[in-house]
Write a protein that binds this DNA or RNA. Structure first.
Ligand SMILES: [Mn+2]
Ligand SMILES: [Mn+2]
Ligand SMILES: [Zn+2]
Ligand SMILES: [Zn+2]
Lengths: 141, 141
DNA sequence: CATTTAATTAGGAATTATTCCTAATAAGGA
DNA sequence: TCCTTATTAGGAATAATTCCTAATTAAATG
């Protein structure tokens, strides 16, 4: 996800209104690496902007997904959002829920092979690995 | 997932009871390739065994997951179940929901690299690609 | 700056997949 | 056949997400 300024400009150019709610959400997503849930985004930005509703968070996330500015992954029945939209692997800690990124440049190739083999038209992909992070793994062996 | 007979034997040996409900669910999962949801499993086996409740389907699926006889993937807020438990890629059609398997032997390597790079202890992984199947893709281009 | 209007928001209700609860049932051992 | 206890049915509870609508407000216009 790009810088806030360019992003605001490009949204405005497309006819979208720039509201404090949208700025707060985008600003937060730009700087965090924690792959927050909608609820977590809501709670976090409420500290600074108390007048943001959860349904606005959801609607803004829909917009950002459509503009391909964030990607969504589903973890244990909950959507988590990621401003890192390049193809990468998300490592999910099954204990604390922490998510870490790992870039992997062979994903594109695999995607091409799968498309060729299956004849599907592939649009996006989602690769998650589940396990225990460095903090948690000592408790599980 | 193995054959029904061995599976029943091994479950019984572990002290689990063999009920008609469990047999119906396992039998169905063994022969289908459609990655059904809990609800779909329920509706399907009800035709043959009308006295199976949805909560039993859920509980049986929990058991089978724990025994690693089925794996679970989440697609659009719904869990889908797969008796193919080797590492593979699931191709999900975003129009009709069909899911197809693609085996990919480089996944193990990638998993090892990710584990090494991140120091996570990796337990399982889930690789989905989303797009349009051969039936649906003509409608989307 | 004041006015206009259509996009956006807040907040609660509705929806839906899943989990939880508990009395009734039945698998399997004796 | 009887007994014990795991399992089931079925409905209630839960929780994430979507839907609905009146009120608000961004930003275009003059
Ligand atoms: Mn990520
Ligand atoms: Mn599969
Ligand atoms: Zn952790
Ligand atoms: Zn399709």
């Amino acid at each position: 996800m790009q810088q806030l300024e360019e992003l605001v400009t490009s949204l405005r150019k497309e006819g979208f209104r720039i509201t404090p709610q949208r700025i707060a959400i985008v600003e937060y997503l730009l700087k965090t690496e924690e792959h927050p849930s909608a609820d977590h985004i809501h709670k976090t930005i409420q500290k600074k902007y108390p007048m943001v509703s959860l349904s606005t968070v959801y609607k803004t996330l829909d917009l950002l997904k459509e503009k391909k500015l964030v990607s969504e992954i589903e973890v244990e029945g909950e959507a988590r959002f990621d401003a890192h939209t390049d193809e990468h692997i998300n490592l999910v800690c099954m204990n604390c829920g922490k998510i870490e990124d790992v870039d992997e440049n062979s994903l594109k190739e695999i995607q091409n092979r799968a498309a060729k083999k299956s004849k599907y038209l592939i649009v996006k992909s989602s690769f998650e690995m589940f396990g225990y992070c460095t903090n948690c793994k000592s408790k599980f062996n």
